[in-house]
Write a protein that binds this DNA or RNA. Sequence first.
DNA 1: GTCATCATGTAAGCCGTTACATGATTGC
DNA 2: GCAATCATGTAACGGCTTACATGATGAC
Lengths: 214, 214
Amino acid sequence: MLELAILGLLGEQELHGYEIRRRLRDELGLFSNVSFGSLYPALSRLERSGAVETAEESGPGVSSAPIPMTGSLSGERAALRARRATGGRGRRARKVYRITEEGRRQFAQLLDNERDAAADDARSFGLRLAFARYLPPHARLRLLERRRAQLAQRLEDARAAAAAAERPLDLYARSVVEHAAESAERDISWLDRLIDAERTDDLGTPLVNMEGHN
Amino acid sequence: MLELAILGLLGEQELHGYEIRRRLRDELGLFSNVSFGSLYPALSRLERSGAVETAEESGPGVSSAPIPMTGSLSGERAALRARRATGGRGRRARKVYRITEEGRRQFAQLLDNERDAAADDARSFGLRLAFARYLPPHARLRLLERRRAQLAQRLEDARAAAAAAERPLDLYARSVVEHAAESAERDISWLDRLIDAERTDDLGTPLVNMEGHN
DNA sequence: GTCATCATGTAAGCCGTTACATGATTGC
DNA sequence: GCAATCATGTAACGGCTTACATGATGAC
């Protein structure tokens, strides 16, 4: 899931780890606070699997200033050089990640993976919907409808359970349960609006904009 | 967290594992689908730590029919005996769990634990609120107000981030973000109602009903 | 006969967290 | 001189999931 989110962000532009975290938190609200302890290892895995490439802080337009590797540098020297790479002053050198074609393939696969997408999980759904523009229209619709069905099912089950309960819940538990039910109802009508929009859109613009590269 | 939920349910009545799962899922909607792979080990841990005691399927009124342990029984025989314990017919023998005084102590501690309760997590909050009747009024208020502050903060941050963004999100991402913001707003006003009720209640009935045993 | 439900458990693994380690720059 | 922010990483651990193992009963 984290890897899906990372690849999704990198699909639009290259970013360094720290910034990926910021966007996930501030802009998308997904993964409200991914820890570095999971983010950096995830980036390493993606690099190892060929989904992303790194460049050592490529300033805009100066992406290919080759820094000759003179063999074994001591840690101190490497750090110094890295510091220089940022432009001479400021922060520690960033490692900028760029998605590869292989990465886009992996992303598409993760995004539309039946297994994961079927998970009855708000976070997974939110993440997938946030990147739904990369999904072909039918998959998008499927995503929305599946989520709707899950919520409707849960609502129905909750009502059946409440009706069958031998004794009622106390004030607080009831408040939690009822609020959850109301939220689910609102989510369902939100989904209905999205599904509607999806369907009318489909008629107007068949199979357009399936590539989301900027 | 699971242990908190289990102890909360057992605080009202004794239950067996399968039933605990059912209630969590159907009645409270919390832990939408706890797996047995985490439920049963949790129950074992609680038993080891003295928070719960087990009784082998005590039918109503026939709780103390002692089954003499004749030493080493083969698996088959043990199973047969276990089957008998249910009343002669029907399902496999249940292991009924009952909370102990030590368990109530642990529960109170878990429920009001600063560290865990501060977690900015909807599930944790929902769980705690569902069992808020076991909390002293001031702790209850603190729980509600902390959650309110967290949501308000997140909303504010999201707005600031949206305003500062260099380029706007696409249709789908925007939909996710906006829906999340609306949900947060509704959650906040729900919390406001609860906080209000808490405050007016406090004036009317000071320090009543702090024990929730049925 | 075989599927769903009730009932309990173990083993392996995933996905994340916290805590630790390091280090520069900017602002108070 | 100290805290906050930017920036990257490792190590240990936690908590939950899936898959596996077992077995009875009742309904179709």
